[in-house]
């Protein structure tokens, strides 16, 4: 059965318009990438509340914070690589330290950026944002979840960072699903008791595919969609450790500092209650190429997950 695809970027742009209708204090900023991040959809509808900042990301972040200090809900968007590393000090001082109501929504995260190459493949953003006090961090897995999380981002106060990929992604949830999604509460997307695959973003779909592969060999995997990486759902992680006795994390991000680190920190402090592996980019810069070839070469597709599961629980 072929999967229904939808681009999370479009979901973001469309949700901004809905939110813009509801909240007259919602403003959007972009840095010469509005056609790619899809903030252009908002810009067309609410030109007065859209600020084109040009290719000047540092200025954009501090400006977003200034707007927020006057009661605006500021959404600032660009590619993940320019939305984090490029502007780290601006985020740290003006957004995180100031506890500003700024929502950084980044697109083109991870290696699925593809052919633009390693310069544009942001695999450290989750780590960079996770270490900042006050900052909440999300990696939605499909367009539906993107919609619901963007809604939550607008209504809950505080600095937040969300990242999606460039490519269209298979729909994991139906358009009206996830009405009760909560920041900081992971989702058991499929249940099982032999292993838990805790994934975020694009890797959730790969984990679901891996689960199918494993079920042919009578291995029942639980798939957790950990859309919020901070605050991490500690209760759910420990529940998985107890009930499935083995955990694998999977993320389109460096294995250092992201979801895998967050989960391992919990497990280590609880005395390492289960077997554990981190899957992600192994501390290297990748390269240009088709996304699916990159996932294969860098060990991040369904086959790799299934293989890692078998090695871990054997």
């Amino acid at each position: 059965m072929s999967k229904v695809m939808e681009n999370p970027r479009n979901a973001y742009g469309e949700t901004l318009v809905e939110l813009g209708k509801k909240y007259s204090n919602l403003v959007v900023l972009d840095a010469d990438l509005s056609k790619s991040t899809k903030t252009v959809i908002f810009a067309k509808k609410y030109p007065d509340r859209f600020f084109e900042m040009g290719i000047a990301e540092a200025n954009m972040m501090s400006t977003a914070a200034g707007l927020a200090s006057c009661g605006k809900i500021s959404f600032a968007s660009t590619f993940a690589v320019f939305a984090t590393g490029r502007v780290y000090d601006q985020i740290r001082m003006d957004i995180a330290y100031s506890n500003a109501n700024v929502k950084i929504f980044a697109t083109h995260g991870g290696i699925s950026v593809g052919k633009d190459g390693a310069s544009h493949q942001m695999i450290e953003d989750i780590a960079l944002m996770r270490v900042l006090p006050n900052m909440m961090v999300f990696a939605p897995s499909d367009a539906t979840q993107t919609r619901r999380l963007v809604e939550r981002m607008a209504t809950k106060y505080g600095p937040m960072y969300a990242r999606v990929g460039r490519a269209s992604a298979p729909l994991i949830y139906k358009k009206d699903d996830l009405k009760d999604i909560e920041i900081g509460r992971g989702i058991i997307t499929e249940d099982g008791y032999d292993v838990s695959i805790i994934a975020c973003g694009t890797m959730v779909d790969y984990a679901l595919d891996a689960r199918k592969l494993l079920s042919k060999e009578s291995i029942k995997a639980r798939v957790i969609d950990m859309h919020t990486i901070k605050p991490i759902d500690k209760k759910l992680v420990l529940k998985c450790a107890k009930e499935t006795n083995a955990i694998i994390t999977a993320e389109e991000h460096s294995v250092i500092g992201g979801l895998g680190s967050a989960v391992s920190e919990i497990l280590a402090e609880e005395g390492c209650p289960c077997k554990f592996r981190r899957m992600g980019i192994q501390d290297i810069f990748c390269e240009s190429g088709e996304p699916k070839d990159l996932f294969a070469k860098y060990g991040l597709n369904a086959n790799h997950i299934a293989k890692t599961v078998k090695e871990l629980i054997k």
Binding site: K115, D116, G117, A118, S119, H120, E287, S288, G289, E290, D293, L294, K297
Partner: peptide, 13 residues
């Protein structure tokens, strides 16, 4: 250009 396992990356290295 821009292909996996080849030298010429999307942006100069």
């Amino acid at each position: 250009l821009r292909e996996i396992n080849r030298m010429l990356q999307g942006h100069p290295v």
